[in-house]
């Protein structure tokens, strides 16, 4: 049971990473990652909404009528998105400005709706919470990584802090949409290559095990 829950938590971070493996939430991924801090803030906002909506939907799964489950999920998700929006506008106005329209658009983010429909609506509360945290952390890490690469190459800074003389040789294309696609695609290829390598190693290990046992016998 414990190992299952650990799997649920880590699933969204590596194996089923929403950005690099499932290719979900591409729109905000490309739009807000011009700076690492924007990626981190967007990821944190999505994680909060994922966690709260997954818990709430899991709690109400027997109460919400099947026919109207999607509108009910959207109302729940929209509530938490509005909470994040109001808190961010009050306490983090510069990040609120930077995320712009993509903050309210979390309501229709396919990662959140997909987890609500595919996981939270048919799993217990604790598992749903762990799934929300895992997926959210996976999304946050991906966005922050893309943001770091784009900011370092495009603006010569790291989380807003200039890196030596890198600013003078920075390549503006990386903070433009084309650079976003370029970085996203390259990182996706690297992550998928590493995943395939790890899966092949695991398969080779499994394949070798029966022979060892046979040898022992």
């Amino acid at each position: 049971m414990k190992s299952n829950r650990l799997n649920t938590l880590t699933n969204g971070i590596v194996k089923s990473n929403p950005t690099f493996r499932l290719v979900l939430g591409t729109c905000p991924t490309l739009a807000v990652t011009t700076q690492a801090i924007n990626g981190l803030a967007m990821g944190a906002a999505v994680t909060f909404v994922l966690l709260c909506s997954n818990v709430m939907i899991s709690l109400l799964k027997k109460v919400i009528p099947n026919r109207v489950r999607i509108p009910a999920y959207v109302v729940i998700i929209a509530t938490f998105v509005t909470v994040v929006q109001m808190v961010m506008q009050k306490f983090l106005p510069s990040l609120y400005d930077a995320l712009g329209v993509f903050l309210p658009l979390i309501v229709v983010n396919c990662i959140i709706l997909a987890r609500a429909e595919a996981f939270a609506s048919c799993n217990p509360v604790l598992d749903s919470a762990l799934d929300g945290i895992g997926m959210g952390v996976g999304f946050t890490l991906s966005l922050t990584l893309i943001g770091i690469v784009r900011e370092v190459l495009g603006a010569g800074s790291f989380f807003g802090l200039p890196i030596g003389s890198l600013g003078s040789i920075s390549m503006t294309v990386f903070i433009l949409p084309a650079g976003g696609f370029l970085v996203y695609g390259t990182l996706m290829a690297v992550v998928n290559y590493l995943m395939r390598l790890s899966e092949e190693r695991k398969a080779a290990k499994l394949h070798a095990m029966p022979h060892e046992e046979e040898g022992e016998v």
Partner: peptide, 21 residues
């Protein structure tokens, strides 16, 4: 059920708005 969900959501938003307006 839908009215109940919307009502609870509205109450929560009103509460947050009180502090974060």
């Amino acid at each position: 059920v839908l009215v109940l969900i919307a009502g609870v959501a509205g109450a929560l938003l009103g509460f947050v708005h009180h502090f974060a307006a």
